[in-house]
Simulated scan of single mutants.
Amino acid sequence: MKADLHSYLKGGRDALLWKLDGLGEYDIRRPLTRTGTNLLGLVKHSAFCETLYFGVVFGRPFEPELPYAGDGADPNADMWATADETREEIVALYRRAIAHADSTIEALALDEVGRVPWWGDAAVTLHRVMIHVIAETQRHAGHADIVRELVDGAAGLLPGNDNLPAGDESWWLDHRRRVEQAALDASGRGNEHVVDDRPLRDRRDVP
């Protein structure tokens, strides 16, 4: 069971890092939602989460302590990269956090108990922590899917397995047009609204 859980965790990690491939500094950092969601920030945040749940919870602290951890840290400091923080530094941090987490996963049994200070010092097993971090990581991988598609239209699950229907750009434009028209029809506006079938990356209203 541990191997299965670990496999799903590794898949989410790989997807997050893959979403950075082929993009410049601006595009991996640019905020594409009202709350500032961005690709490099998702990686930075995920590194932070791994150090907490597989480090602090089981008395195996990650060293050195991250500067954006603790009560005095700026709110949301782990969700974006400053201009001075390089892509290479944050990716390397994530890989170190992963190695630290994996050492915890390999060393402990699934029924090993740790404590989560930010959950009111609740007692939790490694099994529960792995499920929690899998959910967290896969959720952020989904965020990264959408952000990357907004940046340049690229989509897919993992390298070599996009998990999408086979279709060229024309097929996807037609598909999007049908989805948009269905939404308009359901809203009662019907054909009163002109369907904008350009790719998202070509629209002026996309940040």
Rank of each mutant, 00 (worst) to 15 (best):
Leu110Lys: 00
Asp205Glu: 10
Val133Lys: 00
Leu126Met: 15
Gly36Pro: 08
Trp118Gln: 05
Arg13Gln: 07
Gly24Gln: 14
Pro159Ser: 14
Glu136Ser: 07
Asn38Tyr: 11
Met130Thr: 11
Tyr53Lys: 02
Arg30Cys: 13
Lys10Asp: 09
Val116Asn: 10
Pro165Glu: 02
Glu112Ile: 13
Ala69Tyr: 09
Asp71Phe: 15
Arg189Trp: 11
Trp118Met: 10
Ala166Glu: 11
Thr104Glu: 00
Asn163His: 13
Ala123Glu: 05
Gly36Ile: 10
Ile134Gln: 06
Ser170Asn: 05
Gln181Glu: 05
Ala101Leu: 06
Asp84Cys: 07
Lys19Arg: 05
Thr37His: 05
Val56Ser: 12
Leu184Asp: 07
Lys2Tyr: 09
Gly70Tyr: 13
His132Cys: 12
Phe58Pro: 00
Glu25Arg: 11
Ala101Pro: 07
His100Pro: 02
Glu106Trp: 00
Gly70Ala: 07
Asp111Arg: 00
Trp119Lys: 15
Val133Leu: 14
Val116Ser: 03
Gly156His: 06
Ala47Asn: 12
Trp172Ala: 06
Asp102Lys: 12
Arg176Asn: 03
His143Trp: 07
Ala182Val: 00
Glu106Asp: 12
Val206Trp: 05
Trp118Pro: 09
Asn38Ile: 04
Pro159Met: 13
Asp84Glu: 15
His175Phe: 12
Ile146His: 12
Val57Arg: 13
Ser187Trp: 02
Arg176Val: 07
Thr37Leu: 14
Leu17Lys: 01
Arg176Trp: 14
Leu164Arg: 04
Arg87Ser: 02
Thr33Ser: 11
Phe54Ser: 09
Ser187Ala: 13
